[in-house]
Amino acid sequence: MILFLSIENRLIAQHKDSFAVQLFTEVYASSVPNQPFNKLRPAFQYNYTKANNAGVNMSLARVHFSTQRFRTNFGLMAGDYATANLAAEEPWARAVFEANVGIKLSNKKELWLDAGLMPSHIGFESAIGRDNWAATRSIVADNSPYYETGLRFSFQPNAKWYMAALALTGWQRITFAQEKKHPSFGTQITFKPSSKFSINHSSFAGKAPYSFASVNRYYSNLHTTIQLHKNLAMFICWDIGIEYKPNAFRKNATWNAWNAQVQYKPSGSKWQFNARYERFIDRNTILFELPEQIYHQFNVHHTSINIDRLLGKGFLLRAEANYQSSPYPIFRKDTRLTYRQFSAFLITSYNFQYSKKR
């Protein structure tokens, strides 16, 4: 488990100064029997993007410092994730994982104001592969924000509740798009009554990331984690997005995603297992430009099974079998299109942690 002390953790602040360093790298090899001619996985996947090849998904260097009233995080990265997911950003920004500072606004209450580039408040999955139950990302995770830039006002009255309101530069944007300077907004509420159950709702309201500014996007993410047994846990989420076009003939377009995962960790073992099922429906292809078949809708079933093995201090080896299918031909097979795609992955990562408190 990643122990890096960052604002993502949303823990009650420590009264001691703390300093932490994280060095993380993740490499992978993939096998795709469809043999896509461009040697790439589908364009709606922004991690582990190479097909029938090996690559570095992420190399990350990250530092954290905090006192009782101040905290800051900074991280630099490289790899397939940065190349694919930050392609729309300015070249200088594509290597920045996070850069933020926070100030505590109250002596007695956990009331914070954070500013800068931060991990997204939306979703269960992280850009850091090691933090996630499944070895590869869900479609819904790859197509909702991994990061955001702006201001976050957060309040944690106790260990059970966490609340935040955000003013952002846009839908996963480091800087404002040149053609529009309107802020976007977000909210988050997390309730964790015990170590065995938590539920979270996150929302976004703002302009869609297009070249025209008249499209409004509204997004909701609801997810829960349940500890069914000391060795068995379940995660369930539902995402829905709506775009409203005031001057269009069809004013509203909606997409939905459902995602469920089950994780099993035997007691005292270095092995862990995860199974996932996901359904993603985007009838108006709002999020995706389908290859050559622009009149099809995006409608995908996604299943995967992964087996993980802890190899030693900091090392993790993961193997995953991944299957996607659609009623429409949206996957590449050689130079043609087909209805399904199987992929296999072997992923290994190393994570170095150093932290000090005084």
Rank of each mutant, 00 (worst) to 15 (best):
L3P: 13
R10W: 11
D17C: 08
D17Q: 10
A20R: 00
L23I: 14
Y28P: 02
A29P: 03
A29M: 11
S31N: 15
P36N: 09
F37S: 14
L40F: 12
P42S: 01
Q45D: 04
N47L: 03
Y48R: 02
N52L: 07
N52E: 06
N53S: 15
V56I: 14
V56H: 01
V56G: 03
N57I: 02
S59G: 13
V63Q: 13
V63M: 12
T67Y: 06
R71I: 04
M77G: 04
D80K: 02
Y81P: 04
A84V: 07
N85A: 14
P91E: 10
P91N: 11
R94Q: 15
A95Y: 09
A95T: 14
G102F: 03
K108P: 05
K108Y: 09
K108A: 07
E110D: 15
L113H: 01
G116W: 02
G116H: 03
M118D: 06
I128R: 09
G129Y: 03
N132F: 00
W133S: 01
A134N: 15
A141S: 15
E148V: 04
E148Q: 13
T149P: 04
G150I: 01
P157D: 03
A159M: 11
A167P: 02
Q172P: 02
F176Q: 05
P183H: 03
T187E: 11
Q188K: 15
Q188S: 08
T190Y: 04
F191C: 07
S194Q: 09
S194V: 01
S194C: 04
N200D: 11
K207D: 15
A208H: 06
A208V: 04
A213S: 15
T224V: 08
I226R: 07
F235R: 10
I236A: 15
G241V: 06
E243D: 13
Y244Q: 13
Y244E: 12
K245N: 12
R250G: 09
T254G: 02
Q263D: 05
G268M: 13
S269E: 07
K270C: 10
Q272P: 03
F273H: 00
Y277Q: 08
F280A: 01
I281V: 09
I286M: 13
E292W: 10
E292L: 13
Q297V: 07
N299S: 12
G314V: 03
L317Q: 06
A319I: 15
A321T: 07
D334M: 05
T338W: 00
Q341T: 02
S343Y: 01
S343P: 00
A344H: 00
L346F: 06
I347M: 03
